[in-house]
Every structure is written in structure tokens, then in C-alpha cells.
């Protein structure tokens, strides 16, 4: 495997004053974030904290109300096409075309990301095998289970060997074996110099995989730290998370329950 081409030491993700308003409500409220290259970065937060909105803004699916985004040293959205070529995305929702087979979708994705037909076909076949999706190659995606769809999305995110992965709950619905394959592969990608930006509700997974974490609450970063620093303190990641996102608020049980 080749490493990621060396470039000036710009961060993989650099976000300044990012803000997204829906009416009066701020989904993301003045977010500042720097993710160094070659880092496995965990982006945590309770439901509705703004994680998915942040990822959607990073990739250009949602237009920010204010703020600047630079990915791989390039400004977004000014250099959007160039950036997208170097990113692998596993979003929260399915991005799969249901009337294609898994192999056809991977070839399609590879060609959309600039691979030639032959390379796209060869890599698609290898990825199908690697992710154990080649049992019934003529099966349409419409028939895939949720876990198979997530694995296929991960395969599509890998096919062009991106430098930066944006992964929104990538392990959701994936069985233990599939999750293990995905985790090992992502660690390999980081070792070769790629950057992984991951959201997950499973704190143990984040704790085991990530170098750094940020905890988002109500659209703002409330903690940004190296995971090993957290380990050296008295608190676990779960303790810090529960303390910072306001556990105890609104937990009064209704009388009738």
C-alpha cells in the first residue's frame, strides 16, 4: 500500500465559526474544530447535538449560515470538486441506488471518483469479497439488509483510496464480524496516513479507536482532548460525556411511570 501523498502540513479539517440556523434555532453554533492529518478523530454528542449537520456542511450537502471550512487545506465550497475527489463518506442515510447490484454500485462509485473502468471493476470485485458481499453477486441492493448496506457504503467510501473519511455512525446495524472488519480497515487507513472523522454513540468504540475526541452539545464543542489524556485522568470518556452533556437535567421520572 502506498501512503497518502505528502502535502503542506495543513490540517485535514479546519472549521472556524461554523454556524447553521434553522429558523431561530442554531443546530450548529459557532463551531471551531481542527483535525490534524493522520488522526482517528471521534466526534461525539447526544442526539440532536449537531453532528450530522456538521458532516453535511463539511461535504457541502447543507449550506452553513456562517463560518469557514477548509478540508485538506482547500476551502469549501470554492474547491468542492477537488475536495470531494479526496474524501470518502459514509453518511447517516442510505446513498445507495436500489436497482443496482452491489458490484455495479461500487464500479459506478469508483468511476464517479475518477477511476478508469478496469480499475473500478477490479477494486469493486476485491471490495465485495473483502466485505463478504459477494455471496450473491446478482442480488439488487433493494434486497440488502441494513448491515449489508452499511458495509457496501463503507466499501464505496474506500474504492478511490481517499485521504479523509467522514463517517456518520458507520457501525450502526452492522454485525460484530462486519464491524470488526470495518474497524481494522479504518485503523489501516490511518496507519497509511489517512484521516478518519467518525461519529458514534458507542463510546467504547470511540475510546478504543480514536486518537482525539470532541464532544458537541447544543451545537458547540464542550470538550476537545486526546483520548490518552482522558485515560490518564480520573474520568472515563463516558463519565466526561455524561457530565458535559448535562445528565441529570430533565431526568425526573413522571409520577405515573
Amino acid at each position: 500500500m502506498h501512503g497518502v501523498p505528502a502535502e503542506p502540513a495543513s490540517p485535514a479539517i479546519e472549521v472556524r465559526g461554523l454556524r447553521k440556523l434553522y429558523g431561530d434555532k442554531a443546530a450548529v453554533d459557532g463551531l471551531d474544530l481542527t483535525v490534524p492529518r493522520g488522526c482517528f478523530y471521534g466526534f461525539l454528542g447526544p442526539n440532536g447535538a449537531g453532528k450530522t449537520t456538521t458532516i453535511r456542511m463539511l461535504i457541502g450537502l447543507t449550506t452553513p449560515t456562517a463560518g469557514q471550512i477548509r478540508l485538506l487545506g482547500l476551502p469549501m465550497p470554492e474547491r468542492a470538486l477537488e475536495i470531494k475527489r479526496r474524501i470518502g463518506l459514509v453518511p447517516e442515510e442510505s446513498l445507495l441506488f436500489e436497482r443496482l447490484t452491489g458490484g455495479e454500485f461500487l464500479q459506478f462509485a469508483g468511476r464517479m471518483y475518477g477511476l478508469d473502468r478496469a480499475t473500478a471493476a477490479a477494486r469493486a470485485a476485491e471490495l465485495l469479497e473483502f466485505f463478504r458481499l459477494n455471496d450473491s453477486p446478482r442480488k439488487l441492493i433493494a434486497e440488502y439488509s441494513k448491515g449489508m448496506r452499511r458495509r457496501l457504503m463503507m466499501a464505496a467510501a474506500l474504492i478511490h483510496r481517499p485521504e479523509l473519511f467522514l463517517l456518520d455512525e458507520p457501525f450502526e446495524g452492522v454485525d460484530a464480524v462486519g464491524a470488526r472488519i470495518m474497524k481494522d480497515l479504518l485503523l489501516d487507513q490511518v496507519r497509511r496516513g489517512a484521516t478518519v472523522f467518525l461519529t458514534s454513540h458507542v463510546l467504547e468504540v470511540v475510546e478504543r479507536l480514536c486518537d482525539r475526541v470532541a464532544i458537541l452539545n447544543q451545537g458547540r464543542v464542550v470538550l476537545e482532548a486526546a483520548v490518552r489524556d482522558l485515560h490518564s485522568g480520573a474520568e472515563s470518556l463516558e463519565d466526561a460525556f455524561v457530565r458535559l452533556v448535562g445528565a441529570g437535567q430533565g431526568l425526573e421520572k413522571p409520577d405515573w411511570l
Binding site: 470531494k84 453518511p91 446513498l95 441506488f97
Partner: peptide
């Protein structure tokens, strides 16, 4: 939902 792909892909 896959229509989002057209905005994510570098095309």
C-alpha cells in the same frame, strides 16, 4: 435518499 450522492460525488 440516494439523490444526495449527486452532491457528494466529485462530479
Amino acid at each position: 435518499s440516494a439523490a444526495q450522492f449527486w452532491f457528494i460525488a466529485p462530479a
